[in-house]
Simulated scan of single mutants.
Amino acid sequence: METREVILFVFDGLSDWEIGYVTPGIQVPDFQKRPGAWRVRVVSAGGRPVTTMGGLRVLPEGSLEETDPAEAGMLVLPGGMAWERGGNGEALDLAARFLEAGVPVAGICGATYGLARAGLLDRRRHTSNAREYLAATGYRGGDLYEEAPAVTDGDVITAPGVSPVDFALHIFRRLDLFTPPVAEAWFGLFKTGRPEFFAALGSALEKGAPSGAER
């Protein structure tokens, strides 16, 4: 089975928590419908190491500049103050290339500000931290803004910074990563913490396991 890559763009000051559910969901095979079908590839501008908002040092596998949308399955853009300060322009150029190639882009929190500033939300339904937050970019997509924890419109996924679980779920659905029962139980567990969803997740995994084989 071919393994496809989800490109995660990292930069100094990125908001750690906003991708905290996305990366293990893609990397850990336990819950997945087709284990090994996807992996995360971490890239930065110039392939340089970065330090997150939480002080974690990240060593990318590659550079933004060498990333080819034709060889990837999705681009994920975490939030951080750099977007609001006019930074990460190279990542926005790459996002435009991904969308032109029909490859999905997922942005959360400040990354939605960048996507709006680049005109990539002018004709797509979307959400963000607040309607007024995006209006400050001067973009033309205000009529398509939705008050929601996450929105998928075609190849674009957006979410506010306070909705990392919803953001992850929309990404998982777009990648067809989990079966629907597993996705529903996973979301219920991490969104609410209620024990019945833990039991439902275990049950969904058991039903989805191949006969006579380990999950």
Rank of each mutant, 00 (worst) to 15 (best):
E5G: 08
L8M: 05
F9R: 07
F9S: 07
F11N: 06
F11H: 11
F11C: 03
F11V: 04
S15T: 15
D16Q: 01
D16F: 12
W17S: 07
E18S: 04
G20N: 14
G20P: 10
Y21S: 02
Y21F: 14
Y21H: 12
V22E: 11
T23D: 09
P24I: 01
Q27P: 02
V28M: 14
V28E: 15
P35E: 10
V42K: 06
V42I: 14
V50S: 05
T51V: 15
G54F: 05
G55E: 02
R57Q: 11
P60I: 10
E61Y: 09
E61F: 09
S63C: 04
S63L: 02
S63A: 05
E66W: 09
D68F: 01
A70D: 02
E71V: 08
G73R: 01
L75S: 00
L77E: 11
L77T: 06
P78Y: 00
G86T: 01
E90P: 09
L92G: 03
D93W: 05
L94A: 07
L94I: 05
A95T: 03
A96W: 08
L99W: 04
P104Y: 04
A106L: 06
G110V: 04
T112K: 15
T112S: 14
T112N: 13
Y113K: 15
G114R: 05
L115W: 11
L115Y: 09
A116T: 08
R117D: 06
R117L: 13
A118Q: 13
L120T: 08
R124M: 01
R124F: 02
T127F: 07
R131S: 14
E132H: 13
A135I: 06
A136Q: 15
T137W: 00
T137G: 00
G141K: 00
D143W: 15
D143N: 13
L144C: 05
L144F: 14
E147Y: 01
E147T: 03
E147R: 08
E147L: 02
A150F: 02
A150M: 03
A150H: 00
V151W: 02
G154N: 12
D155T: 05
D155K: 06
V156K: 09
I157H: 04
T158P: 08
T158K: 11
A159N: 12
P164N: 10
D166K: 05
A168C: 11
L169T: 13
H170C: 12
I171A: 05
I171S: 05
I171T: 09
F172N: 07
R174N: 11
L175Q: 00
F178D: 06
V182C: 07
A183W: 13
E184L: 04
W186H: 08
G188E: 13
L189E: 01
G193W: 03
G193E: 00
F198N: 15
A200K: 14
L201G: 07
A204L: 04
E206L: 15
K207M: 14
P210Q: 07
P210K: 07
S211N: 14
A213W: 15
E214N: 14
R215Q: 09
